Amino acid sequence: METSLYLTLLISGFYTPSSCLHQYHLITNNMNWTDAQSYCRAHYTDLATVDDMEDQNRLITSVSSSNYWFWIGLKKGDSTKWHWSLADRRFYREGETEFRNWDTGTPQNGNCVLMSPAGLWNNASCDDQHHFICYDGKQDTNLTYVLIQENRTWIYAQSYCRQHHTDLVSVRNQTENTEIKKKISLRGLPVWIGLFLDSWRWSDHSDSSFRNWWTGRPSTEQRYNCTLVSDNTYFKWINYPCDYNCSFICYEALQLKRQVVRVKMTQRDQHLNLRDPAVQDAIVQELRNKLKEQGLPADTKVTWKKQPDGEVFHKEEEGSPKKEEEEKKMKKSMMTKREL
């Protein structure tokens, strides 16, 4: 793919709220889950919500020197919902978390999802063992989809992908489904993907799909409806009766800011489909690399902002008033620099 930046980033000049950073607070008083929830809501924001691995690592840092069991805000609810293991909301555009490619007659029984060599999805018991596909979003690798040819349970596959790559693969659209199908079709075996079904809900009513269960959890025993974490389980989670008294972790929501920027681009390859999510992701990666060269912090997130009509890119017509105005500004800026 060949693209070139016609102009460098044009900063819009204002900032808008983006998302919340969770600052965690360890409370060593022993309370049951309901009382812990009330305490956190009175003194902070709520019992701890964990949105992603970055949150998980911050939570570990806040409690790593203490040998306790801690309540967090995850509790079993009354209804089930499909989620992706990769919970970072910035990874998904509107509607992409809802993409499905079920085979005929599915889903039926089973809380974890396999993709067949034909690219169709089936659900199965999470304890079954299959090969699996990891997604790798790291900037230092050219591999996006990594096929692991070992028969493992879904939970093991999730842990492996998070440790060695980014997470079990999410399939956001038909283009990605086709790419992954090509990756596995020659093997002739189904693979785990990151979709799973559960009924667990966060105390603050957020829709985070992040889970980090210990092997064999969550238990299906009745009354084991609340979630504990401890360094005894390497900070993996277990479910336990909610009336158990123990320490807990609250969180305080700190508002993050985002900077809105505009990018004008010249398209060298006129056959390039700028509406293709894969092409848009590739351009974002290229922008991220260029910004890193200019000193952008490595952990800064760069994503597209859709226009009101749902599109990311708009073709600018020659001679448009907006274009002429921007060109005049550029010329004026260049003249000012020469005068200085």
Rank of each mutant, 00 (worst) to 15 (best):
I27Q: 15
Y39A: 12
R152A: 10
Y160C: 11
N212C: 09
H271G: 13
W71R: 03
V284S: 11
L26I: 12
E286F: 09
D269A: 10
L7D: 10
Y234S: 15
H43V: 13
W192E: 04
Y24A: 06
C250H: 05
K236D: 12
I133E: 04
L228S: 01
S38H: 12
L274V: 11
V312I: 12
D35H: 03
T16N: 11
G188E: 00
V312S: 03
C250S: 09
R288W: 07
T16W: 00
S230N: 05
T28W: 09
R201M: 03
W214A: 02
G110T: 05
T16Y: 05
V171R: 06
Y234L: 10
Q285I: 07
F313T: 03
Q37H: 06
N29Y: 10
S4N: 13
R288K: 14
K306P: 05
V229A: 07
T141H: 10
I60C: 06
R338Y: 11
L26M: 14
G310T: 05
S125Q: 05
G73H: 03
M335G: 08
C161L: 07
Q158K: 08
R201C: 01
D276T: 01
K138Q: 14
N142P: 01
L10S: 10
A282S: 15
L47P: 05
E54I: 13
D207T: 05
P218W: 03
K138R: 15
R90P: 00
W154S: 02
Q222W: 05
G319S: 07
F210A: 01
G119L: 00
R90L: 13
I72Q: 04
N239G: 02
T8L: 11
P190G: 02
K264V: 12
R275Q: 15
A124Y: 08
N273I: 07
R268E: 08
V312R: 03
K301Q: 15
T3I: 15
L47H: 04
F91D: 05
K75L: 00
Q280M: 08
Y224L: 04
L9Y: 07
P321D: 11
E293I: 01
Y6A: 13
G319M: 06
Y68V: 06
E252H: 12
H164K: 15
A282D: 13
H205P: 02
V191K: 08
K323S: 14
S4Y: 13
T34G: 04
S66W: 13
Q222G: 06
Q307C: 02
I27K: 14
A124M: 00
E98N: 08
D52I: 02
Q307S: 12
E316A: 10
T80K: 02
C250Q: 06
V50A: 01
S38M: 09
N32V: 01
V171I: 11
S66A: 14
T178E: 09
L274H: 06
E221V: 10
E94L: 10
N289D: 11
S125R: 06
I249R: 02
G13T: 01
Q270Y: 11
T8N: 14
F14A: 13
C112T: 00
C126H: 08
Q163K: 15
Y24D: 10
Y24G: 07
I133Q: 04
D51C: 09
R268D: 12
G216M: 06
M330Q: 14
